[in-house]
Amino acid sequence: MNAHTATHPHNRAVTLLRLILLASLLAAWEILAQSGWLYRDVVPSLLSIGCALASLLSSPDYYFHLSVTVLEIAGALAIGGTIGVLTGLVLGANPFAGRAIEPYIYYLGPTPKIIFFPIMIMWFGVGPGSKIAMGAVSCFFPIALSVAAGMRQIDPVLIRVGRSFRAQAWQMAWKIYLPAMRHPILNGVRLGLGIAIIGTLLAETKLSNRGIGHLIMRAYSVFDMPKMYALLIILFALAIGANAIVGRIGGLDTIRRS
């Protein structure tokens, strides 16, 4: 939380409402778990989920799988993001290339990338390679599109200002284009991160021999529901944490100022 919300008069009421919602959700869950209405462990008790979480967090095996998934996502974002930003810059700077190529990216973007997974397995194998490829392909599209759009939205007068002061090409890029595009680039990366996580985990749950997605499917196949929910909670925390880091790196406070 930041200074803006801290000083807001409704702040306390909002926090209270959030806590009430969370508490009632947990209570409803526990009631459902204890009632016995549902088949066995479909809704396990909070205690058993807690125990599963604790035993997970104390097992070295889990940390191996966690690091695999985190590295896969980071690799996917690095590869897909770099190619996406570069593609976006080219499309944004060159109207001809933009008009020719962007429709493909635009229509391929929302297509579920999982359809490429069999190809990825053939090319990169069952291990992390195919997962990184899936994540990279997924996050490439939103990043390329938002960077291209961002480049076209730069206020032309700012470019004229730079030219009037006789800025060199690299000064224009570094001091005007990049900072002027900080919002679309950051938004693209944030969108891309979410989609890279989806792509990577989807691939892990389909066919893999390591990673959190693999652990989830293994827990599911032996019907170890408490462990499965514990893994989902970890995944949830992972996604929130990753988003927070991207927001922090991009300096959300400077975004609010303008």
Binding site: V157, R160, R163, S164, I176, A180, R182, R257, S258
Partner: peptide, 20 residues
């Protein structure tokens, strides 16, 4: 020929850099 160092321009549009 091109922007001259002796000429300083002030534009009609909003031209400050919002990130600075």
């Amino acid at each position: 020929r091109g922007p001259h160092p002796s000429i300083g321009m002030i534009f009609q549009e909003e031209s400050t850099f919002p990130w600075r």
